[in-house]
């Protein structure tokens, strides 16, 4: 009996080690780090620190659609392949970071340029900042102080922040965006979870189209043309597919179960 127990114990330990993969629990990022993207396609090869991009600041000013559709940033980090020459030509980061004033009249620093004036020698570090002690122009705490709080992610309820008019994400960039009619949002719908007893997921098209438009999600993320035709599980979503494309990286994270699993539209 004792021997069997010892064998079982060692079998369990061996199985745990074998299936643990890295064996390290994922650390929850700090609010200001949630949505942070490090871009290093060419930076280090060019002798610069990798770029640190903060989603929290940019999403407070622009819709996801503007950057990921009109400007052309890919949805997966590192797959756009941004070069300094692209920025200099006025594309990608250079679409806004071009040294000209923005819609509020504030001069937006130039992202990349062939020459840097002596008084702007630290400008590169504003983006190429990984591992450097760079004081950001916007302080997360001060910037988000008035925003309604959320439980996870950035610790901000972005949906409420937008609904209350505390942020007005810009969806049109002169010279880049195309003038279009206002979007006609499709109907909200319910999705039944596989697990019995879990509240239905109410998906709000209206709330998603405010930030995303249509082509950001369809068909790249949600390919099924008929409701219910694509079956997806929480494992896939946690793995960064479907809802998980945004809700593991930028939008409120999947640990905030009740924001999706609700019978009333949230």
């Amino acid at each position: 009996m004792k021997r069997t127990l010892i064998i079982m114990f060692f079998v369990l330990i061996a199985a745990a080690v074998a299936f643990a993969q890295t064996g390290v629990k994922k650390k929850r990022p700090l609010p200001y780090d949630y949505g942070k993207v490090v871009i290093n396609n060419y930076s280090e090869k060019a002798g610069l620190a990798p770029v640190v991009f903060n989603h929290w600041l940019h999403r407070a000013k622009f819709t996801c659609r503007l950057c990921h559709v009109d400007v052309g940033f890919a949805m997966k980090a590192g797959t756009t392949g941004i070069k300094a020459s692209d920025n200099i030509s006025g594309y990608y980061c250079g679409s806004c970071h071009n040294g000209k004033p923005d819609a509020e009249g504030n001069k937006v620093f130039e992202s990349c340029s062939k020459t840097v004036p002596p008084d702007e020698k630290n400008r590169c570090q504003r983006c190429h900042s990984l591992g450097k002690n760079v004081k950001p122009a916007y302080d997360f705490g001060a910037f988000t102080e008035r925003f309604p709080k959320g439980r996870f992610g950035n610790g901000i309820d972005w949906e409420k922040t937008e609904a209350e008019g505390l942020v007005k994400p810009v969806d049109f960039l002169e010279g880049v965006s195309i003038k279009r009619q206002a979007i006609t949002a499709q109907k909200d719908f319910a999705l039944s979870p596989k697990l019995e007893g879990m509240p239905d997921i109410i998906f709000s098209h209206k709330k998603h189209t405010v930030w995303n438009g249509c082509e950001l999600c369809h068909p790249e993320i949600f390919v099924g043309v008929k409701k219910g035709s694509t079956k997806y599980s929480m494992i896939e979503i946690f793995d960064g597919k479907y809802c998980g494309v945004c809700h593991t990286s930028v939008a409120f994270p999947l640990t905030d179960c009740q924001r999706c699993h609700t019978k009333s539209v949230q």
Binding site: V69, D70, V71, G72, A74, G81, K83, S85, D86, S89, Y91, Y92, C214, E215, L216, H218, P219, E220, V223, V225, K226
Partner: peptide, 27 residues
């Protein structure tokens, strides 16, 4: 190169959306 990269991606997004909507209407 730059324009090609940006606009091919944008065109692809538009085209795929139209294909997606067409599929949903035909289904």
């Amino acid at each position: 190169e730059t324009q090609r990269k940006v606009y091919l991606k944008r065109l692809q997004l538009c085209r795929e959306l139209f294909v997606f909507v067409l599929g949903s209407k035909e289904n």
